[in-house]
């Protein structure tokens, strides 16, 4: 059960934090998974994303965060992101964090509203409504900024 989840979890974490923290949190999530096997639902990924979010939050509270952020910045300066990446990520950054996370779960993790709900611990109905609003807000931001709407920005950062 845990084995097929490793790659999606790695990508989930790589989208949200630096490589060192991602490795640490992945280990933590797998340990939680082992300890709470009986709690893992039939569709484990949304549940595991929820665990990963909590573990990530804990990790980012730690005193090492600052050091890792410095490493991440240095890393990112050397690695250009995909074309259009910076523009869209900039647009995401302008949204409320909750909205941006909904959109990441939807587009990057490929979750539907019910799975987003499971990952965030909210009702499917609430997830569907919030996701709809978040999409609309992102589309507005992208439309309002000519640079972002052209989708041709190159370079940028990984997160």
């Amino acid at each position: 059960m845990a084995r097929p989840a490793i790659e999606p979890l790695r990508r989930f974490l790589a989208r949200r934090t630096d490589a060192v923290t991602a490795d640490d949190v992945l280990s933590e999530v797998l340990m939680v998974c082992w300890r709470r096997l009986e709690a893992v639902p039939e569709q484990p990924l949304p549940w595991l994303y929820g665990v990963a979010r909590l573990q990530l939050r804990n990790a980012e509270r730690s005193s090492r965060r600052r050091e890792r952020l410095a490493a991440r910045v240095a890393e990112e300066l050397q690695q250009p992101g995909p074309p259009d990446g910076a523009a869209v990520r900039d647009a995401l950054a302008l949204l409320r964090p909750q909205d941006a996370e909904l959109l990441r779960l939807w587009a990057w993790e490929g979750l539907g509203p019910a799975e987003v709900a499971a990952a965030l611990g909210i009702s499917p109905n609430a997830a569907a409504i919030r996701l709809h609003r978040a999409k609309r807000r992102l589309a507005e931001v992208l439309r309002d900024d000519p640079d972002r709407s052209t989708a041709t920005t190159s370079g940028g950062t990984a997160r």
Binding site: R10, P82, A87, L92, W106, A107, W108, A151
Partner: peptide, 9 residues
């Protein structure tokens, strides 16, 4: 657009 900006792609 979002997927094209996926840092884990």
């Amino acid at each position: 657009r979002l997927r094209a900006a996926d840092p884990a792609s």
